[in-house]
C-alpha cells in the first residue's frame, strides 16, 4: 500500500448564480497515492476543471474535506494556500502562462522568489530544472522567442523547480501538435517514473490520457468511473 498523497471526500463546489445554486462538483471522493499518474477526462462542464482548481488550492470547496499530505487544506486561508501552492504543487497550463518579456530562467525562478530562496541557490535550482526538461541552451530566451513545445517545457521546469510532489497539468498538450505533444507527455512520464512526482493530468484526448496509469472520468459534477489502465 502506497502512501496517500491526496484524499478528498464529499467534496462539493457550489456556485451561486443569481437565485439558483449550481453544483459544479457534487460530493466527490477520491484518493491519490504518491507516485501515481492520473488522467482525468470528461466533457466540458463535467466538473473536472473545478476539481483541478480545488486540488490545486486555487479555490476552496463549499463543503467536504481535502487532505494533502495529511494536512486539511480545505480550511486554510488565502496566504496559507499560496504557500501550499508554492512548495507542494506545480502547475502546467494549456496556455503556458509564462511571464512575457521575462527570460526562461527568470520564469522558472518565479516560485523560488516567493519562497524566499537566496539568489544564487535560486539560479542553480532553476538551471537544474531547465536541464531536466532539456532547455539548458535556451535560458535567456523570452517566451515569444520560444516554440510552443519549448514554452511548455519552461512551464514544466517551473512546476518542478521547487521539488513539488505534485504536478497538475490542465490540458498541457491542447495547444501543441501531435509530435510535440508526444515529447511533452514523454517528459511527464519520465518525471513520474524517475523522480516519483505525482502527475494529475486533465485532457479530453484519449491518446493523451493513455499516458497515465489510472483514468478518472467526470460527468455532471461526479466521478463516473475510476480505473487503472495499462
Amino acid at each position: 500500500m502506497k502512501e496517500i498523497l491526496i484524499e478528498v471526500s464529499n467534496l462539493s463546489r457550489i456556485y451561486h448564480v443569481g437565485d439558483s445554486d449550481i453544483a459544479a462538483l457534487n460530493k466527490v471522493g477520491l484518493s491519490i497515492s504518491k507516485g501515481e499518474f492520473v488522467s482525468i477526462m470528461g466533457p466540458s462542464g463535467s466538473g473536472k476543471s473545478t476539481f483541478m482548481n480545488l486540488i490545486g488550492c486555487l479555490d476552496t470547496p463549499s463543503s467536504g474535506t481535502y487532505m494533502l499530505e495529511g494536512i486539511d487544506v480545505s480550511c486554510l486561508v488565502r496566504d496559507e494556500l499560496a504557500e501550499i501552492r508554492n512548495n507542494k504543487i506545480g502547475f502546467v497550463f494549456q496556455g503556458f502562462n509564462l511571464l512575457s518579456r521575462t527570460t526562461a530562467l527568470e520564469n522558472v525562478e518565479l516560485p523560488l522568489l516567493y519562497s524566499g530562496m537566496p539568489a544564487r541557490q535560486r539560479r542553480e535550482r532553476a538551471l537544474d530544472a531547465l536541464r531536466t526538461v532539456g532547455l539548458e541552451d535556451r535560458i535567456d530566451h523570452q517566451p515569444n522567442q520560444l516554440s510552443g513545445g519549448q514554452q511548455q517545457r519552461v512551464t514544466i521546469a517551473r512546476a518542478i523547480v521547487n521539488n513539488a510532489p505534485i504536478i497538475l497539468a490542465d490540458e498541457p498538450t491542447g495547444n501543441l501538435d501531435t509530435k510535440t505533444s508526444a515529447e511533452i507527455m514523454d517528459l511527464f512520464v519520465r518525471l513520474n517514473r524517475d523522480s516519483g512526482i505525482t502527475v494529475i493530468l486533465v485532457t479530453h484526448e484519449n491518446d493523451i490520457a493513455a499516458y497515465g496509469r489510472r483514468l478518472v472520468r467526470f460527468r455532471d459534477g461526479s466521478i463516473i468511473s475510476d480505473e487503472a489502465t495499462s
Binding site: G56, L58, R78, D79, A82, E83, R85, N86, N87, F91, N97, L98, L99, L110, P111, Y114, S115, R158, N162
Partner: peptide
C-alpha cells in the same frame, strides 16, 4: 498577477 498568485505569491 494570476500566474504569480498561482505559483505562490502571497497577498
Amino acid at each position: 498577477i494570476g500566474i504569480r498568485i498561482a505559483v505562490g505569491a502571497k497577498t
